[in-house]
Nucleic acid binder design. Sequence first.
RNA 1: CGGGGAGUGGCGCAGUGGUAGCGCACCAGCUUUGGGAGCUGGCGGUCGGGGGUUCAAAUCCCCCCUCCCCGACCA
Length: 571
Amino acid sequence: MRMSRLFLRTLRDAPGDADVESQRLLVRAGYIRKVAAGVYSWLPLGQRVLRKVEQIVRDEMDDAGAQELSLPIIQPLELWEQSGRDALYGPLMFRLHDRKETGFCLAPTAEEVITATVRGEYSSYRDLPVNLYQIQWKYRDELRPRFGLLRGREFLMKDAYSFDADVEGLRESYRLMYDAYHRVFDRCGLTFRPVQAQSGEIGGDVNHEFMAVAAVGEDDFVWCRSCNYAANVEAARRRDPDPVATNGDEAALEPVHTPDMPGIAAVAQHLGLGEDELLKCMAFEADGRLGLALVPGDREVNEYALGTALAGSKFALLDEDGFARRSSLPKGYIGPHHPDVELIVADPSILARTEWVTGANTTDHHALHAVPGRDFTITTVAPLTAVVTGDACPNCGSELSVDRGIEVGHVFQLGTKYAELLGAVYTDEHGAQHPMVMGCYGIGVSRVVAAIVEEHHDGHGIAWPASVAPYAVHLVALAGKGDAAAAVRDAADHLYAALRSAGVDVLYDDRDSSPGVKFADADLLGMPVQLTVGAKGLARGVVERKIRASGVRDELAVDVVVDQMVASAMT
RNA sequence: CGGGGAGUGGCGCAGUGGUAGCGCACCAGCUUUGGGAGCUGGCGGUCGGGGGUUCAAAUCCCCCCUCCCCGACCA
């Protein structure tokens, strides 16, 4: 492509509303343009990158045995009413009506439609398994679209759906996708981790999020640098500290005056203690019963873990209203020896210390020497603390790290939920009917583009991995003076033609601009290899090569350039 | 949804009552040519929209729209 004809305008300044580097660079370099909050146009260069990522995804999906189809973006609301997700998604869905006032939505995802589609075609165990996918635009009216392509309201997503006869089949389908995802993100040049995660609103059991490590990520996740352990911050566990036995000679419970100190930090400072010596008592109600969740004062309660510990009970931490109703609970001064407390869930670390400082259940007072088992009775011991960097890995004991990541993929074992709700059943070899067992597998294709830029850029611009670069080579012709100018132009034209006929994708800067502009644009646009044809080099029969990512430069004889480029494209 | 900030040419910005300007970009000419060149001359804006105050509004007042940031409860 000749840059003199490319629909491209690079910007020296990024728009003021860009809030992450990927957005700033993609806009400055002319890959995308914002049309509305969370809605972007993909200009020619951007479209090429999007297609590259798409094609990697398509390759790996096809290799894994999935079949591509295309489902509608406009979906009847009726399907969403059947699955019950109409209400669940609520205002997150873009809604519209046709002229007959029939309700539709713009697809935020496609479990309903795909299930209805398979239901209409397949009904025998002989048909299964089958895995269908599409690469299609999705729509979510996010509360707060932000971070450019990372949280848009319109985004390109690959969604695959597997249908199996039984759970064993599902596990195999899931494994195929899980493995394919590794290959996809490897090929895209991303540093990532699959992490155990919660299922969120889609429902189902086993699932993994694929997190690209990035400071601008919206989700914290926990991973071990020594072993393979990785988990969503809510599902993460640490290795529990060992319990210590009480000697039985601890001093008796002793009240202490702590005026106007409803927080851990103030009390610890006042008493000259570490925050980890204080007992944090978080009040909750579970099925109407008052409970306390106990963690060390320097820790926070992981509500998801608390839910697990309460084994399905409906529970909620007390809010302001709750405290208002429970007037006997002095918020900030609660101790576990409270007469109204019906159950106490304690983190294992509570048993790793013989005595605690805790609330005295009287405003402005705390209590020293609270001994588990003596002064209060623990109903259940279960992991409750939110994991932080430096905690011990539950698998290997090494240090865990809590980092931010961009969720670029998510794989779920859905089970039979949608098949049951929407009637996708098959007949087995004995003539009995069963719901199909489903899995679903998403990749945020447009988000991946942004994630790649987040990982592959520097102060000058983007540095695309070769696998997704819009062009393999950025050929720069420097206009010289007089006869030299003509020679340079001539040599560059020939090189351009030769590279193209050798099958190399070339972006050719044939513009009549100064060298500075051309170099700056080349670095900003980020093709993996830059070839510069200038009068000086040409006189010696060489062109200069610069590897964008490393900045390494060398010179190539003009007559070996094409072979070199073709060879490096192979590797 | 609540709080804060902001909308002025394609992009970045200035302009606190007197009729709109700067840089980049764009167009023309001349010069320049290995890291975002110089000079000269141009094109381009109903100042987010509507209403109001005023002799006069980008500027003051009201309403609306859009955009950005922050905000859950750790006791």
